[in-house]
Design a protein around this nucleic acid. Structure first.
Lengths: 144, 144
DNA sequence: GTAATAGAAGATAAAAAAGTCTTTTATTAA
DNA sequence: TTAATAAAAGACTTTTTTATCTTCTATTAC
């Protein structure tokens, strides 16, 4: 469904939202360990998300990643769009470029319904909302 | 959502079902052209689907691919499973190995609903059913 | 049986995605 | 102001996916 890059991004964002609640910042090493992702790789991903304004960061001692204001209420849909683009939400299920409402592919209508539901689900899933759930058991963001 | 390989596979299967209705067989060149896929690549894919019993084929002159009996009523779900495996239907949305009913990840429940719908949609979509739709306008399986 | 045809199978190549390393720049504490 | 810290940026490597080519084998028409 998502690329690995995107999965890492989502997990990292959830972790950062959780950790940076009281104005704290989280270092890349701590993030990588917590979500069980390759350190250098997740660093790249977060730099990208930073450029796109979905996360904030600060260099130097006591530096790290954090989210402030509206950023902490960004949705999974925002992250997916930033990393994987909108092909999941817009593209034809069969990869046909010319598939459209007036020239639908064989599974166009069935797909449309499902795709809208995926979009709504991801749009409703605000990063900040996961925090409470996570406080109970942080290990959920790890792979094993 | 699907790999390119899987998209090609679905398109090819729909085309074959349509063309092999009256006991006819379709050559790989015709398939490749009709669904706008690389010839050698779709050949590989169909060989794979052939081994897995989702399509039949015959070598030599007048040879080609075809579907007979139950094969023509295989579903998109069957094809997706054969090519991409079942990670779309079973895996955790965040790629967590330990995500489960008792230890759900933050988006586990939301995902479950969507995933089931995707599965049902693909399971209901029988290859043979697309034929009538296609007879009206075959170009729908092409990319441009 | 023979020649032509067309898929099967294996090797190879190109492109994209995932992952790693090194150097640079910004920030802060002392 | 300096040393330590931590992210930014760019180069590079590995792995996976996608795509291509060549040789082999089965089938058919004649």
């Amino acid at each position: 469904m998502f690329s690995k890059t995107c999965e890492y991004a989502i997990r990292a964002m959830i972790f950062i939202a959780q950790k940076s609640k009281g104005g704290n910042r989280v270092g890349i090493k701590e993030i990588a360990k917590a979500i069980d992702a390759p350190e250098y790789f997740i660093a790249k991903i977060l730099q990208d998300l930073g450029r796109k304004g979905l996360v904030q960061s600060l260099k130097g001692p006591t530096g790290g990643f954090y989210q402030e204001g509206e950023t902490s209420q960004c949705s999974l849909a925002d992250i997916v769009k930033a990393i994987d683009g909108d092909k999941l939400f817009k593209g034809c299920g069969l990869g046909l470029k010319n598939c459209s409402e007036t020239r639908p592919c064989p599974i166009h209508n069935e797909f449309k319904v499902v795709r809208e539901e995926i979009y709504n689900m991801l749009e409703d899933a605000k990063i900040g909302e996961f925090s409470k759930q996570l406080e109970k058991n942080l290990t959920f963001l790890r792979r094993r």
